[in-house]
Amino acid sequence: MRSALWALVAASILWGTTGTAASFVDDAVSPIATGAATMAVGGALLLAISARGAIAAVRRPDARRWLLIGAVGVVVYPLAFYSAMDLAGVAIGNVVALGSGPLFAAILERVVDGRRLTRRWMLGASTGVVGVALLVAGGHGGTGSADPAAVPLGVALGLLAGAAYALYTFASGRVIGLGVSSRSTMGAVFGLGAVPLTAVLVATGAPLLQSPPSLAIIGYLAVGPMFLAYVLFGWGLRSIRSSTVTVVTLLEPVVATLLAVVIVGERLDALGWVGLALILVAVTVVSTARRPGPGP
Rank of each mutant, 00 (worst) to 15 (best):
L103P: 07
A54F: 06
P294D: 04
W121P: 11
T118P: 09
I176H: 11
I240M: 01
S182F: 02
P294I: 05
F104M: 02
I55M: 13
V155R: 04
G142W: 00
P152H: 06
Y165S: 09
T246H: 08
S181C: 13
G128I: 07
G295C: 05
F227E: 11
R2V: 12
L251P: 03
P102L: 04
V58C: 14
I92T: 01
P78W: 02
S181G: 15
V111I: 05
S23Q: 11
L98Y: 15
A48T: 09
V9W: 02
S3E: 06
A91W: 00
D269V: 14
L209C: 06
T288F: 12
I240G: 01
F24K: 11
Y82C: 11
R64A: 12
I69P: 12
A28N: 11
A150D: 09
W235G: 15
V75Q: 02
A106W: 08
W66S: 11
G275Q: 08
G89V: 12
G295L: 10
G205F: 01
R290H: 09
G53W: 02
V76Y: 04
R115A: 07
L192S: 03
G191H: 01
R183I: 10
S242M: 12
A44D: 05
A4I: 02
L117Q: 08
R2Q: 15
R110N: 13
R110H: 10
A91N: 03
P253L: 01
Y77R: 00
A11S: 08
I176Y: 05
V41Q: 05
L103A: 15
V130K: 09
G35W: 03
M1L: 12
A133V: 09
L209R: 07
P196N: 09
G191S: 04
S287E: 05
S182V: 13
L103H: 10
G139V: 06
V75F: 05
A156Q: 11
S30T: 15
L268E: 02
